[in-house]
């Protein structure tokens, strides 16, 4: 089966700073693919390029057969991006925010309604969705945004540090939400500097450092290869 997403030799320069030096990986249908690495490794830049926010300096990104440079609008139709530091419109009620976002993806009102109903179920925010997003806690906002990202059943959900800044309980709930959703055929590309989280969530992972993929594979295969008990040790040994 052809991969949903194929990244080949991706490079990105900010002036003289080379943020990505040739990143390559593939995401298969229905899998959770984790990009792990420390802060400044190039995770966010990679995800921003795939989600059409940034243009690559070099390299190729293919999604469902479409080339990123030629068809960015096709990417936007089928992907869903959750930035690390994202928010919702503060003056909008949670439910209105979901409806607002759903209408960009839906062909008609009934489809948009279905998306919103799905998002309501995913978020688990219940009656609080009738309150303005400005009144939400960080955890509630993250759940709302994650529900927004998953409600359309995108071919690829790109989640940048999905549990960033959340407490233990909220992090666990968000992880369960992500894990549960791939059962419906959604592929997930996520990044995190929390390697234990990625190990729990991902089918396959890529280790990224200073703009380069050091290694990739299933968490189990990588642990065996580096004779490590967890991905944190795998990463340390891969860097060495």
């Amino acid at each position: 089966m052809a991969p949903v997403l194929e990244v080949e030799g991706l490079k990105k320069k900010y002036g003289s700073l080379e943020a990505l030096k040739g990143v390559s990986f593939k995401v298969e249908e229905g899998e959770i693919f984790g990009l792990i690495g420390p802060n400044g490794a190039g995770k966010t830049t990679t995800l921003r390029i795939i989600s059409t926010l940034l243009t690559p300096t070099d390299g190729r990104v293919t999604f469902l057969g479409f080339d990123l440079k030629k068809n960015p609008e096709k990417f936007r139709e089928k992907i869903s991006y959750l930035p690390e530091e994202a928010g919702a419109y503060r003056n909008m009620k949670g439910i209105d925010y979901l409806e607002f976002m759903a209408k960009f993806y839906a062909a008609d009102d009934s489809e948009a309604k279905k998306y919103v109903e799905r998002a309501v179920a995913i978020s688990g925010l219940g009656e609080r969705l009738k309150d303005k997003a400005g009144t939400y806690s960080k955890g509630m906002t993250r759940k709302l945004l994650l529900a927004r990202a998953l409600m359309t059943k995108p071919a690829l959900a790109i989640l940048d540090e999905p549990t960033s800044g959340l407490d233990v309980i909220n992090s666990l709930e968000v992880r369960e939400m992500i894990k549960g959703f791939t059962k419906e055929g959604v592929s997930v590309l996520l990044s995190s500097h929390n390697m234990l989280e990625v190990e729990f969530l991902s089918d396959r992972v890529a280790l990224i450092d200073r703009g380069l993929i050091l290694d990739s594979g299933t968490p189990q295969a990588l642990k065996e290869k580096y004779q490590a008990s967890n991905l944190e040790i795998v990463f340390r040994r891969a860097v060495q």
Binding site: R48, S51, T52, L53, E73, R76, E77, I79, S80, Y81, L82, P83, E85, A86, G87, A88, Y89, R90, M101, F104, Y105, L145, R148
Partner: peptide
């Protein structure tokens, strides 16, 4: 400020 711009730029609208 509300960190909504990135999300808006990735929705399917030109």
């Amino acid at each position: 400020q509300n960190k909504t711009l990135e999300t808006l730029l990735t929705v399917p609208i030109s």
